[in-house]
Amino acid sequence: MSCLQTVADYGLRSMGYGERLLPKTDFTLCQQFTLIGSGMLWNIYFGVLALMFGFLLANVIALAKASRFALARKPAEWFIFIFRGSPLFIQFFLAYEALVLLPRNGIEIFGMTAEVSWLSRAWAGALLVLFLNTAAYTAEIFYGALRSIPKGDLEAADAYGISGWSKFARVQWPTMLRLAWPAYTNEAIFLFHATTLVFFSGFPAFRQEGDALYYASYFVDKTFNPFVPYPIVAFYFILLTLALIGIFGIVNRRLNRHLPSNSRSKLKFRPQIIR
């Protein structure tokens, strides 16, 4: 069987297209690369969506935490503490166990029956956990940045008579993003790394449609040889990390474009591994 044929059969296997049965014996390198690569689609799906929604929620929570009103500040502080203070692994387990307890035939809301069983599936349930988790980590980063906005910037805004919403939208928020961006880049990278935990933590892989690490450990279980599949996962993730750094670097340049070139903040990849 040629390699192209394998790609056609298994390229979208993780999404449920192509050959139904996974290869059982005589694994070729091509099969491993194709299946693990197809699993990467899930990692990208989880990472991109959680990052996008998490970014929006993180802004709200960071502002709430910086608020003067305890009614807004306390819930935000607790949200951040719970999601940053406990392992993501336990959060996945907890969420899965909670979501399977939802009634099977839907919840009655105002006479309408809302189907909820899909929430216990990985594509929705795990995404929900990752979304809340990254929102908490990002909110803490944004909160820190919000507090380190140079005093002079705010005074200058006051001096120009900019206040309220336009002060926030034109001075505070862009500066916060600019200051937070290097740390946020790291958070994004580690969010992608965290997506590998999904199928190891309660959420079952429906019809053997899993992520990159799921297929890699499938191969390791079958061949008892860790020296091929895991380096393939590592290879894919290094590519993904480089792509992320590239994309975030472009945004970083845009956020810093008004500054003299020697005071721009550079993106630095600093490790902060498990959540």
Binding site: I189, F192, H193, A194, T196, L197, F200, L213, A216, S217, V220, F224, P226, F227, Y230, V233, A234, F237, I238, T241, L242, F269, P271, I273, I274
Partner: peptide, 19 residues
Amino acid sequence: VRGIPDIVFFLFFVIALDQ
């Protein structure tokens, strides 16, 4: 360890060390 998910290392090293 940078750029590679830590869980890959965890799964990899245990079998690799054992073998």
